[in-house]
Nucleic acid binder design. Structure first.
Length: 252
DNA sequence: CGTAATACG
């Protein structure tokens, strides 16, 4: 079972590029998409009905903004569009699909670069997700929490660590939350399987960042530790183009 | 620089 996660930076844009070819070639069992940048009124059969998949969407109230989608071959037992807290659910960042073997949280965590308020929102969003996950785990659930976390964890996960110490996405406070997440019993699957590998999942569109590989690893499949023994593989697909992020995978 | 709307990442 392979679960993919990809911030596509506009689902309509990537549909005009290589999205359907990507799905066909890589054949994910589940595909979690972030930054769909669409609202319910923008949905059409082309976006909803990829052959062989059920699809689910969360939408932001703001047009052309945020939004996540989950495409899955197997029908989920349940689907939730948030964590039950309006300020965190209204931006269409969360989609929770429950399956027999695990519950999958597809999340587009907030970007904190705009201003202090958004950074504060991001940090509170982080804590709300941790609370939600801890409750689920205490109820016996096994979790996969994937998506765009908008934070590189350690200096290994970013090309220019020193230059970005005061940039949201690599702030001590943001990195400390990932430490806290880990100490609460969750594991970064890619780093668990590849402790030494330097690989990134996002590059700015500016300054030829991708060709120079001035990247950040900000997309993750975390799992609750009660799933750790089930992880077979985790990869970052740097070769896939089409967005400022590349897809990442976990195999169970 | 890129997406989708004229803001946001």
């Amino acid at each position: 079972m392979k679960i993919y996660s990809w911030n596509v930076n506009g689902l309509r844009a990537i549909m005009k590029k290589n999205f359907l070819e990507f799905v066909k070639e890589y054949n994910p069992d589940i595909l979690c998409i972030q930054e769909t940048k669409l609202q319910e009124k923008d949905l059409n059969d082309n976006l909803k009905d990829i052959e062989g998949y059920y699809s689910y969407f969360s939408f932001a109230e703001k047009k052309g903004y945020s939004g996540v989608a989950t495409y899955t071959k197997n029908q989920p037992i349940s689907v939730k569009h948030g964590i039950g807290i309006d300020e965190f659910d209204s931006e269409g960042r969360i989609l929770i699909t429950e399956f027999q073997e695990f519950t999958l949280l597809n999340i587009y965590f907030p970007n904190g670069q705009m201003n202090e308020e958004r950074l504060d929102y991001k940090m509170r969003f982080y804590d709300a997700i941790l609370d939600y996950c801890n409750k689920e785990v205490s109820n016996g659930k096994k979790l996969i929490i994937c998506g765009d976390y908008n934070t590189a964890h350690t200096p290994m996960d970013i090309k220019n660590a020193k230059a970005n110490e005061k940039t949201s996405g690599f702030l001590p406070m943001e990195r400390a939350w990932i430490d806290k997440f880990i100490s609460n019993g969750y594991t970064d699957s890619f780093r668990y399987l590849n402790p030494e590998e330097v690989k990134y999942s996002w590059w700015s569109y500016r300054f030829k960042a991708r060709e120079r590989n001035t990247g950040w690893r900000i997309d993750y499949h975390f799992v609750s530790n009660n799933l750790l023994n089930n992880i077979k593989n985790a990869e970052i697909l740097n070769e896939v183009m089409g967005s400022d992020h590349c897809p990442i995978t976990i195999e169970l």
